[in-house]
Design a protein around this nucleic acid. Structure first.
Lengths: 221, 221
DNA sequence: TAATAATGCGAACGTTCGTGCTATATTATC
DNA sequence: GATAATATAGCACGAACGTTCGCATTATTA
């Protein structure tokens, strides 16, 4: 019962790569088997159906995202630093990811936005989890005093997500090297808008100056 | 030579609908023919290849977008009102579009971000056109004095695009009815950030008060 | 080492894919 | 209304699709 698990993992690794190029629907058992040098039937035996393979592939991509982007960001001090680290890793992930095609999950979002079934269900759950985690990180930054108390976590998470999503689009489809910079600019503006005090021209509240170090020198407006 | 053009148009109409559900790659000649009550070969005769059909379908979707969103917005007075109308129509387009699945173009962006060929070429050109047109509209708003003179049109267009894109995601995949509202909030914030004068707490420049009517009462910071 | 379970291969299944031909309807032109 | 052009259907093709099944080969365990 050991060898099987190993090859199953090998299969899923290649499946993620292949799905990043051709999408989860374009992920075909024949080509996947060919890429791994094994037979269709031998590969198929590891999954009850193609749908199972797709769900497993999605889960694998999601785990990789968590391992590479989310969990390491938790090492940063909570609040704004953690939010920044999260953003940095996220953009880098969709920028020069080792995957040949773009992020599997982002690709799946448009593929399954109107296609009921287990794949869509898993995808939606995963996306909602991510959004909730984002909102929680924002909330934490607000209670830490790094963001304004009236900051709407869901709104912030929505806009953060939008920035990363669009950066992926510009990088991948338009091959625009400025994508990451644009995303950073937008992200800093989002932070500034929700800053605990008006960015300028108003008197500083007590103790506010001690937080100015949270804003890096390169940050725009 | 008249009837042919007509049925070709009928075909493309259904093709857009079908591609919105299954993607441009999942758009299959057999099912398209079945939906139209005609034979595969009869349908196929209108296009030299499937790739031709895909490109034509994409162009059809793009034309519909231009007709429904972009051109009507040009009727609004240039500057901020036009930008607002553009945004409003764009969000409405991807929100309750008549298409069963989401927007064909948005779907294609992730499908062809790493798949060379004529489809991708047409898509990239179309997206760049749109982005340029957006940036031009922003530039116009700046020269009209509705936005700050230092407004970066490309940056603004990027963020505007990001907002609409994310709204489509939330509406379509997550089925979140609050998507449009979130998008509007983000859009108004984007405008406020690039307002010709700091939103508050600084002295008004000459003649600035005459422009305050550009900001609707419902607009949030 | 022998018994047993796990693993992979090869061949074949029925379908559907895109794409050619050829013949017949249908439409436009004179 | 005859004729030429166009539009559609019928049929067949090779390939690839997901899936099943029986058999050989490994790994694991007793």
């Amino acid at each position: 019962m050991r060898k099987g698990q190993q090859t199953r993992q090998d299969i899923l690794g290649q499946a993620v790569a292949l799905a990043s190029e051709h999408g989860l629907e374009g992920l075909t058992i024949g080509s996947l088997a060919g890429r791994l040098g094994m037979s269709k039937s031998g590969l198929f035996a590891h999954f009850g159906s193609k749908e199972d393979l797709q769900v497993a592939t999605l889960k694998n991509a999601r785990d990789a995202f968590e391992r590479t982007v989310f969990l390491p960001a938790l090492a940063a001090p909570r609040g704004l630093p953690r939010l920044r680290e999260l953003f940095r890793r996220w953009v880098a992930w969709s920028d020069d990811a080792t995957l040949p095609g773009g992020c599997v999950i982002i690709g799946a979002t448009t593929e399954y936005d109107d296609r009921p079934g287990p794949v869509r269900d898993a995808l939606v759950a995963s996306q909602q989890d991510l959004r909730r985690a984002l909102a929680r990180a924002v909330e934490l930054a607000a209670t830490e005093g790094h963001l304004h108390r009236d900051t709407d976590p869901e709104q912030f998470a929505f806009e953060l997500f939008a920035i990363v999503y669009a950066a992926h689009h510009d990088r991948r489809l338009l091959r625009d090297p400025a994508a990451a910079l644009r995303a950073t600019t937008a992200f800093e503006a989002l932070i500034a808008r929700n800053a605990p005090r008006p960015p300028r021209a108003t008197p500083l509240p007590d103790g506010a100056s001690s937080q100015s170090s949270l804003f890096p020198p390169g940050g725009r407006e």
